[in-house]
């Protein structure tokens, strides 16, 4: 679900980036105001928990497994805006220290996992969680379904972002992503139910905003109004993005789809490569005089040059401190 760099065009990256930055900026202000000096330790340890839980694989179908995302869980446990802060911190850490998820895709990833996969389903739980009767079971059921929906919605947004960038055709990537994630989402839903169940039976007071307000009692009118406000604003922003950004984005020269139509790798690109760099004038013996051969030779040349430059860097470089945190403590 983490989109790397290069899969989104810059206009898509910028649009999602602005949207995400707005949401996160607001969330950070709210979190500071609501929680005061407890924000850093409480949200920080919660983020560490989600981070650890994300490394948990669960079996999906014979042989395959999915992993936990936790956007909705974060929002349910620490509150919606605090949850956005928690998920953003995780996405940032993964992008900057682990190399999981791109930098230009930060906005899209935050949008998918914190807003579409957290805030939105949270609204659903909030609105429906206490609608029928205040029972633990109804709350858990709604939360489970919402967690499933969170994963499916996030995967759909991810697919749309890829499609608008011209990376993958919408007609194929949307159904594929939604299909796969509607199975993986079952795991997310069940995990969320299991986790919340433990919390509800032993320390329900740790769960912010539980029990959710009864939608039929007199007070939630204001809430419903706000929920509508959020929904309408979201819709307007989405439409604006679709109307103004999407056509621009797909007409960009570096939209991959477009390039596919106008330029053939065989007749132009490789000729240029060969013409410009003497190194690429070689051909790979096994492949004969084909564009594949040129490419293979080019790739080989690059690998060699890459290695030489790494060695040059090492020669000029410094010895890493044995106690400096090493890169790549990922996945310990």
């Amino acid at each position: 679900m983490h989109i790397p760099d290069g899969f989104l065009t810059l206009p898509v990256a910028a649009a999602t980036g602005v949207a995400a930055a707005t949401a996160v900026g607001y969330a950070a202000r709210r979190a500071g105001r609501e929680m005061g000096e407890s924000a850093v330790p409480v949200l920080g340890v919660s983020a560490a928990f989600i981070f650890a839980a994300q490394m948990l694989n669960f079996p999906v179908l014979a042989g395959t497994s999915g992993h936990f995302v936790g956007g909705l869980l974060a929002c349910l446990v620490v509150g919606p805006w605090n949850g956005v802060v928690v998920m953003t911190a995780i996405v940032l850490l993964q992008a900057l220290l682990m190399g999981d998820g791109g930098l230009t895709a930060l906005g899209a990833n935050v949008l998918n996992m914190a807003v579409v996969g957290g805030l939105l389903p949270w609204l659903l739980v909030r609105a429906l969680g206490g609608s029928v009767r205040h029972t633990r079971t109804s709350y858990l059921a709604v939360a489970g379904v919402a967690a499933w929906l969170a994963v499916v919605l996030a995967s759909a947004t991810c697919a749309v972002e890829l499609a608008v960038s011209g990376t993958a055709p919408l007609g194929a990537v949307l159904p594929a992503m939604v299909l796969v994630h509607s199975v993986i989402g079952i795991g997310e839903g069940l995990l969320t139910v299991g986790i919340l169940g433990v919390l509800l039976s032993s320390r329900p007071e740790l769960l912010r905003g539980y029990p959710p307000p009864l939608s039929l009692s007199p007070s939630p009118a204001g809430f419903r109004k706000r929920a509508w406000g959020v929904a309408v604003t979201g819709l307007v922003v989405a439409v604006l993005l679709a109307v103004f950004v999407a056509p621009w984005a797909s007409s960009q020269p570096d939209g991959l789809e477009r390039v596919a139509e106008t330029q053939a790798f065989t007749d132009r690109a490789t000729d240029q490569v060969a013409a410009q760099t003497p190194l690429f004038d070689y051909q790979f013996p096994l492949l004969g005089d084909t564009p594949w051969s040129t490419s293979a030779a080019g790739a080989m040349g690059t690998v060699v040059l890459f290695g030489l430059v790494v060695l040059l860097g090492r020669a000029l470089g410094r010895r890493a401190s044995p106690d400096g945190a090493e890169i790549g403590h990922d996945g310990t």
Binding site: P41, S46, F49, L56, P59
Partner: peptide, 30 residues
């Protein structure tokens, strides 16, 4: 041994007790 999707609820309960501990730890860290 988690083998199929049905075992995920149990896995969730384990993770839930971790969350419980984490939130208690958050209080102590605070």
């Amino acid at each position: 041994r988690p083998r199929h999707l049905g075992d995920t609820v149990t896995l969730g309960r384990l993770t839930g007790s971790l969350l419980l501990r984490s939130l208690q730890r958050a209080e102590r860290v605070h």
